[in-house]
Design a protein around this nucleic acid. Structure first.
Lengths: 213, 213, 213, 213
DNA sequence: GATGAATGAGACTTCATTCAT
DNA sequence: GATGAATGAAGTCTCATTCAT
């Protein structure tokens, strides 16, 4: 099915912002990639910054909702962590452009927009912090410096968006599983019995980001 | 001692490129930060891109040299990995602006400059790959997908530049030690006996990046 | 009828390039003369150099075509020379700005553009050389050094663009006739019987450069 | 013998102004060609325009003086014309850069400087006009439109500076003789008996412009 | 005598955006 | 819904020139 002009604009923006940065992407680049004139762009967006904000918000919103849904019924910290890592990795591998824009272009936002975006990001990171704290409190995670560990984990997982290619040899679910294993190892936690939690995360991710298996 | 104008220019560039990106930094911003007129900038640099390339090359050169010096006398893979992680983390925490520029602005380079910079980066990453391969071959590292593990490790360690602040609670050497521990855990490798290797790396890093203890 | 903006730009450029030289003409001068903003200029041209190239090419193209058309049915060297001089003089008097730009600003072109423009000019001069050679071979021209004579002739005729003013006392066709006479004298050739050949040239010139009689 | 710095500056200016035009030549180009720093240039000149004026004035002064000296003892119009053409051609072939600067860069002068330079040029052209008038009055020149003929002659002779190369096949004095012949033909005047007048001009030219025979 | 450092002004060009059609 | 035309502001970079050393 053919794409809406609006969708073409959005996708062009995501691709270009990811590849060349917000300031490195001109309105003319966007127009060319979306195959309309640069004046017509303004039927489908507000300012260039509005377009950026929109992209970031949608990306973070979806990630946040997916995380909450995934974790809703999970209780044990290792399982929750495994699920969150799985979800995060799949999200970043499935839409690397969107997530790189979110990660790299925050500085391009005006003060007001930045506040909102950073707020969403902080909400999401609080989930990670919560899981680590629970695990440490429960004695199942060994993390002398939980804040450091959290950041190390997040950077490791987020980094997937910087290198993952769907044309690589490793299927996405196996990649995610590998990352979950690495995460648990970092916390000195044995792998959970089954992969119920991770399985849950895979389901959600597959649906939310329309990953074809 | 007062700074040379050239040094002021360089530092302004590093700070601004890191904070607002290459394309987000104007020549006027640079001039203002270096406290000279924008015309005077051009006594101390070629083009804006030349300045960027210079920054990147020096940063990568130093890292590469430091890594080679550090690893020169080390043999066992766990020690080598511990040393490399220590060095990498200290370098990225000591000069987060420089390393973020290297990591984020490669896309802003022209084709020719990009080739050179990416060449240096690849050389450096080959050192990591070598160590992982040795460890796996020697049976001391458990890494089903060495390439994935390498990338996970690198992203985790490089990420330090994105959040580390010298005003944080954790001294730099302890931070590095924590990361070395995380790295070895990720590879299912017990911590090495003494910390000879890491100590070696700390020495080199302290000297190369003039870290005050 | 009112002029197109594009035409206004072109005419402003011709006038200014002729009067002040390519490098002596600023983009602001052009914009002011064309009565648009300097940013708007760039809807009607590529770079300033593109504009120059365009002017040169069109001028040379027209001259070349007109020369070929004029000479198509002429055989005897004196007649051919008379026609070519007539055409050349009328062209240079009718559009002195264009031709002065062609003559004076070749050095301002980049290498690639220069090659093309000089190619056209050489093609045109080859026509002159051919006529001289024919006349000498036929014994009707006395030109001990044909190359020198050709250059003397060309400079003499091209020079018209440097001083001719339509407000002068001599009608254009009489000026051209005078030049044809001078040219034939230089070659020791008696004036041709009628002025069929020159008449032919006058027709073509009048049409091509829209000269009002 | 080595050149004075001042001479190097002057020659660099002449060469560059001729090749790239006054506005196309930067102060840095001049400095580089003269092998000094651009700041040092200002020990040897006033402004860039002063340098241009100096070059033009000296060139025109010398030409004017040489013409007056040459014509001092000559009486018959054909001889005078032959001498003047010879002188003019030799001057333009001997120092093509200087004369091209005089011819092409008048528009680059400020109003005051332009007045002076054009004054000199007019003085010189008046000499040509005088000779033509005398010849026509004496019935030895056939020039229905003396003004047109004068301009045609001048453009033809001046044009030498635009193409002459000392590496060409024709010795300078033979070139000049050829031009004198062309000029007289244009005026319907038979070649003068001996070449006394032209010989006189050759002497003067050889001395004034230091032409090696 | 020579120059590195410095700069205000201005070079050409592109920017994001608006608006009449 | 679409766009050619238009522009003020800003982009990077070079200009001719001065001056302290």
């Amino acid at each position: 099915m053919a794409l809406t002009t609006e969708q073409r604009v959005r996708r062009a923006a995501v691709k270009l912002f990811a590849a060349k940065g917000f300031h490195g992407t001109g309105i003319r680049d966007l127009a060319q990639a979306a195959k309309i004139s640069s004046a017509s762009l303004y039927h489908y967006m507000g300012t260039k910054e509005d377009l950026l904000v929109e992209i970031m918000r949608e990306c973070l919103d979806r990630l946040l909702l997916a995380a909450r849904e995934t974790l809703a019924d999970l209780d044990d910290p290792p399982g929750r962590l495994s699920a969150l890592v799985t979800l995060h990795v799949m999200a970043h591998a499935a839409q690397p452009d969107e997530t790189r824009v979110v990660d790299n272009e925050v500085a391009a936002l005006s003060r007001a927009a930045r506040r909102r975006v950073v707020g969403l990001r902080d909400e999401y990171e609080a989930i990670w912090a919560g899981i680590l704290d629970e695990g440490v409190a429960a004695g199942v995670f060994d993390a002398p410096e939980p804040a450091v560990t959290r950041l190390a984990l997040l950077e490791m997982c987020t980094g997937v968006a910087r290198w993952y290619s769907p044309r690589g040899p490793l299927p996405l679910d196996r990649l995610a599983a590998r990352y979950a294993q690495l995460a648990l190892r970092m916390l000195g936690s044995p792998a959970p019995d089954g992969d119920t939690a991770a399985g849950r995360a895979r389901e959600v991710a597959t649906r939310v980001w329309r990953i074809r298996p």
